[in-house]
Design a protein around this nucleic acid. Structure first.
Lengths: 193, 193
DNA sequence: ATGATTATTTGATATAAGTCAAAAGTTTTA
DNA sequence: TAAAACTTTTGACTTATATCAAATAATCAT
């Protein structure tokens, strides 16, 4: 049962921040393309530069890095979010982040070059980027606060609130590394011990 | 020995990201004004909305919030950085952050309304905001990583590296709350125990 | 300068979370 | 559908950091 993706979600997301002219809509449509990832599939290998940004229509992607041979989840992204390896994408150099699909995931992507074209020709795209980044910013600050001053249990509660729509779909081990605690501790927290 | 501030630093900062036209320079000059804070002085009270953004020419500002009656340092800002309470400033609502001066600090400030005027009339200002936010972004991600997977000692080392130019000027208690550890632990780390 | 306030250090003890090891449960694949 | 490969849970023990309390040290205000 493959739904054909539509640009509905992505356009609605833009319109939360800017008004989309017909011209910009058509230029966007020309440059975004659907791509589907199977559960477990690698979306970005840290050995490559991140040259595409993916907008999630359905599913969950995970951004992670490897430390001491273990995968450490940096964050999870769900519907209506853009995913790339930020530093790599913006500065066109390698970074440490891998991206994979936790579920079968439908996305649209845009190439960095096309995005640059849009930035250069549509000032409202710059505004969109500034404003949408601003919201992510707030989440980051909150997360830093949550990481510092709360017990493992409080951190897990905060995670549940923050990811209320998807937290139950993410394997325990990945959640533990996201929170910076061991699997065993998280398992005990869940069991209420 | 009061130096009169010049717009040198601030213009140079803009030019790291965009080309400043004479027109934009003059509009900027009209809208930024110097203000000096004495050590210990409150720059922003969390009971007010953050309506000014301060660019530091000299000195250190601290952004903090209050938890269980204690001041928790969120971050420190030094020369050539913009400081405001991000969510409050952008969304024109109250947030939890106070800002104060750790040293006598010279800044320029711009009002949010003036900034909006510049965003509306100079697309390159949108670009400046997007690009300069991007660099801050990377630091945030790194910090989250550092908070999760490292011992108190490693976190302190990371802090020293990250704030190499100013870390020795920040009181121990403030650093401890920034790192999410107790003063006692930080004191012992410093003593090498 | 001098007492008062504030910041830092040191010591003794408690505790949350880590580690290692193995068992139980779940999902994948051939 | 059974075996293999993961993932989660449970148990026993260890350790880093917190807490509480008090002693120094540094800074501030009169």
């Amino acid at each position: 049962m493959n739904n054909i993706e539509t640009t509905e979600n992505i356009f609605a997301h833009f319109e939360k921040f800017i008004k989309l002219s017909e011209d910009l809509k058509s230029e966007l449509s020309k440059r975004i393309k659907p791509i589907v990832f199977q559960k477990g599939e690698l979306v970005l290998d840290a050995n490559n530069i991140s040259k595409k940004s993916y907008f999630i229509n359905k599913g969950i992607l995970r951004t992670y890095f490897i430390k001491d041979g273990k995968e450490i989840s940096e964050y999870f992204s769900g519907i209506n979010e853009w995913v790339n390896s930020p530093k790599s994408f913006m500065q066109r150099e390698k970074d440490i982040y891998y991206i994979d699909a936790i579920e079968n995931t439908e996305t649209f992507f845009i190439n960095v070059n096309d995005l640059v074209y849009l930035f250069d020709n549509f000032p409202e795209m710059e505004r969109y980027a500034r404003l949408s980044m601003g919201t992510v910013f707030g989440h980051f600050m909150e997360r830093i606060t949550s990481m510092r001053f709360t017990s493992a249990k409080e951190r897990y509660n905060h995670f549940q609130k923050n990811y209320s729509n998807i937290y139950h779909r993410i394997p325990l081990g990945m959640v533990a590394s996201y929170l910076g605690i061991t699997q065993e501790t998280l398992s005990r927290i869940r069991a209420g011990k």
